[in-house]
Nucleic acid binder design. Structure first.
Lengths: 349, 349
DNA sequence: CTGAAAGCGCTTACAG
DNA sequence: CTGAAAGCGCTTACAG
């Protein structure tokens, strides 16, 4: 945290119209930006009525012009007049009013659980946000464990156009449409990529390291790794849990190595899990890749900093985010090819 | 990423009333939760009108009862009847309609920049979310760099009750109210804590390690560290930049040590920066704490996993989040004491 | 003690 | 080609 927050200085920001930002409550140690549309009085906001009055047409006509309603045929002169008036007055549609009328606001909510930070989530959110913005929608995120009640509250409060569960298609890729030839993308492809790299390095006995705690994706990952190993003619993939507490993890690795001495490489569930494994090896007086190769997944910053530096998979999920956005909006998704994941070769595998 | 997403399985969720969840669009590889209030027809949603009809009173009376309007005196019998009807029908107020009328939705938006993940942000968001929920509001987060235009879009879309800039009071703590005796909390207190720990370990020449890139908080941190050192009678605090690229960071540390050989301890801006410094030392054939002690800030998971394990500051910002929530809602903030930060002593300092 | 009415700001059949 | 009207669902003065 605390790295590079921006624009701290910009605290008061007033605009003609109805925006008003102020510095928290008197005497409080907190500076908060407030929205006080009503504080400025009824005249604050420019509405359709104002535009209609200014351009000498009815409210309906203004709406038709501004929304480019294809069912109307309005003279070029009128359109121009309306547009000009709207622009001059600085008219911005009132999202709430529009949403009440249309049945949904131009907001899309993303549900995202804790502990999913990484390259994937960052690029995914960026792509989602950009694409949504390009179509006039706003992305808002809900963090933490989701319950039906929580989601319900969001729905009741702002009636978003859609609620997206983070990366669900990616994470459940195996059940879904096969995009152009097998494992071209998705969790399946990337699991395969990880195993393939290890195989190319000459490893034939590979283990998958999984995090502790409930994890709905672990089983799928394991299955993809197994299938890949099978195709490549490797020994069946085995697995072990790398728990978060340091000593417990060292013990787990020790026990695993005793039980499976033939295993020479570990495909970790994430960079986090890989780091746990690396630390365990260190604590056992062992090193990667000589005693055991360790490969991460999803390229976090510290992977480049640990010793040995982590070999990992880098996934650019920007296109995944864009796809999610278009799907949520019911738009055509063609022409959006996710970038292939790549192996970042460093020292650990 | 990918660690422990939950409830992936729960994809279809239908409820009487007007909620309808479905599985994305036909043939698409994406599963998305859709809100389609209108799909079920006008009869889908239970409105105030329905409750009024069911309980034999007017819409206004229902609103008065349900909102406990203190200006009205409504007979106990009527109230009971209305409540019962609302409950039986499963009435939930339509947030958008209410917001249109009241001028703001019951939503608070948190603006948070990239690269701020850590213990602080996590506990802050949790506290904020909980407290807001306790007062009938929903927290929604916007990620990434904020521009006035972006904020404006959110405002126009859902008219939130307030927009909070992440941890601003904490980050700008020095300008703010002095809570009970100097540096009792805030960035100032925690900077002091970090320096104090180093001093207690016998260090008299301390350097602050800062991240590369623009950073509005760096200057404040440095000042607090300097003030603390001054109070403790240490040598003036010096500083250097620990850039993200590994080799550049090693060079920076090398040059710094050559220029300031008397420095024996580093107070890092964050755990990330501390890790960079640790890696640089390693790359230079040096070790912490013997050649140079390194102390982190804000306790991330990998700090416990690197070698030497990182000594750091653990900050529980849950109360900060609650304070932000209450302030945003204009509520009394008394009785909310932030937990003091603590030093997590491990090996690096 | 309760109800009829206005209105938040917009969109969209429906007339002309 | 354009406007008057209804209505999304709620809250709140204002009458009775």
């Amino acid at each position: 945290m605390l790295a590079q927050p921006s624009r701290l200085a910009e605290t008061v920001f007033a605009e003609p119209g109805c925006l008003h930002w102020a510095c928290g409550t008197a005497g409080a140690a907190w500076r908060i930006e407030w929205y006080r549309g009503r504080v400025m009085g009824g005249s604050g906001r420019v509405t359709l009525n104002d535009v209609a009055a200014a351009s000498g047409v009815s409210r309906a006509t203004v709406s038709f012009v501004l929304n480019d309603d294809p069912n109307q045929t309005i003279s070029a002169a009128t359109r121009e007049r309306v547009r000009q008036a709207a622009h001059d007055l600085g008219y911005v549609p009132h999202g709430l009013a529009r949403a009440l009328r249309e049945g949904a606001s131009r907001v899309v909510v993303l549900n995202i659980d804790w502990g999913l930070e990484g390259n994937y989530s960052r690029s995914y959110v960026r792509g989602l946000d950009d694409e949504l913005a390009a179509h006039g929608h706003v992305l808002l995120v809900r963090h933490g464990h989701q319950t039906p009640q929580e989601t319900r509250r969001v729905l009741d409060a702002i009636r978003p156009r859609a609620v997206i569960r983070f990366a669900e298609p990616y994470l459940t890729g195996h059940e879904l449409e096969d995009r152009g030839g097998g494992w071209k993308d998705g969790l399946a492809a990337h699991s395969a990529l990880q195993v393939r790299h290890l195989a190319e390095r000459g490893h034939t006995h590979i283990a998958q390291a999984l995090p502790d705690g409930e994890n709905p994706v672990a089983e799928a990952r394991l299955r993809f790794a197994a299938q890949t190993a099978d195709r490549l003619g490797l020994a069946p993939v085995v697995s072990f849990i790398a728990p978060r507490p340091r000593t417990a993890c060292a013990r787990a690795v020790e026990e695993f190595r005793a039980a499976r001495p033939e295993v020479t490489a570990v495909a970790a569930f994430t960079d986090d899990v890989a780091l746990r494994a690396l630390t365990a090896l260190h604590d056992l007086g062992l090193t990667a890749p000589d005693d055991l190769a360790v490969m991460g997944y999803d390229d976090t910053e510290y992977g480049a900093l640990v010793t040995p530096a982590l070999t990992t998979i880098h996934i650019d999920a920007e296109a995944h985010g864009r796809l999610a956005a278009r799907t949520a909006l019911g738009l055509d998704t063609s022409g959006l090819e996710p970038a292939p994941a790549r192996v970042i070769v460093r020292d650990s595998a």
